[in-house]
């Protein structure tokens, strides 16, 4: 490995990460989650048509390759008269993809909350929407964090596919530097390390979030904390 090359390329690679990979991941995850909650609720709807549409969407997203979804939006839509720039194309494709997968996680998490919670919410005067917002979703969130973290971490790496539609994110930067110099080993290894560090940070965030959302699930730990605070 050429250390000078590492020093020279780290700047452009980090810039690709900060200006490409990270915003692409963040925007797609947020978009995907909004979609996921809506689709999950649609799948739990009492209205048949709403359920079928949601089910069809999930089926298409899960049944086709992400790369194909990306190509349809970027390369195929223009022939229908709809041209979208690379970066927004990628966000749309990844959001749609995350939405399909995460909706199943959200749906399962909602279904995992016991019926008694719905009933208790109803008897204190909540509508279905209020029950969902204040009682069911906060509890479902705790259940959904580990599987959603998986989705999030996969997304970080999947954004590398955006390099195929000319988005200048981390992998594309690496390719751009490697191509004329033939330093594939150095550049792709560096890219790998950066992806890994990003995912590591997310895993740590996951642990933190699980503890925070699960405060009520750890009575022993909470008790010990309380005693510690009292005696400090």
């Amino acid at each position: 490995m050429d250390l000078d090359l590492v020093r020279e390329s780290i700047g452009p690679l980090l810039s690709g990460t900060i200006r490409g990979t990270i915003p692409l991941t963040a925007a797609s995850f947020v978009g995907g989650m909004v979609l996921a909650v809506l689709v999950a609720l649609a799948r739990l709807s009492r209205v048949g048509v709403v359920r079928w549409i949601a089910q069809g969407y999930v089926s298409i997203i899960r049944g086709t390759p992400l790369l194909v979804q990306l190509f349809i939006i970027f390369y195929a839509l223009p022939s229908l008269g709809l041209t979208i720039d690379p970066f927004p194309s990628a966000i749309i494709a990844f959001s749609l993809n995350v939405g399909g997968y995460a909706s199943e996680i959200v749906r399962a998490a909602i279904l995992s909350i016991p019926r008694g919670q719905w009933e208790a919410a109803e008897t204190i005067g909540y509508s279905r929407t209020m029950a969902l917002r204040r009682v069911i979703l906060p509890q479902a969130a705790r259940v959904a964090v580990p599987p959603l973290s998986n989705t999030f971490i996969s997304l970080v790496k999947d954004t590398s596919l955006a390099s195929t539609i000319l988005v200048t994110e981390l992998l594309r930067k690496a390719q751009e530097i490697a191509a004329p110099t033939f330093e594939f080993l150095t550049l792709y290894s560096l890219a790998a390390v950066i992806y890994w560090v990003l995912c590591l940070v997310l895993s740590i965030g996951q642990g933190f979030l699980e503890r925070r959302l699960g405060r009520h699930l750890q009575p022993q730990i909470a008790k010990v904390e309380k005693v510690r605070q009292a005696t400090a």
């Binding site: 016991p114 008694g116 204190i124 005067g125 909540y126 204040r134 509890q139 705790r142």
Partner: peptide, 27 residues
């Protein structure tokens, strides 16, 4: 108001918050 066999308290809320939930947010 109903008292359930399996209490059905909201596990993510403290005892006080469980009491306040309905009066504040529904009423």
């Amino acid at each position: 108001a109903m008292v359930f066999q399996s209490h059905n308290l909201f596990p993510h809320r403290t005892a006080l918050q469980n009491l306040m939930e309905g009066p504040v947010f529904a009423q």
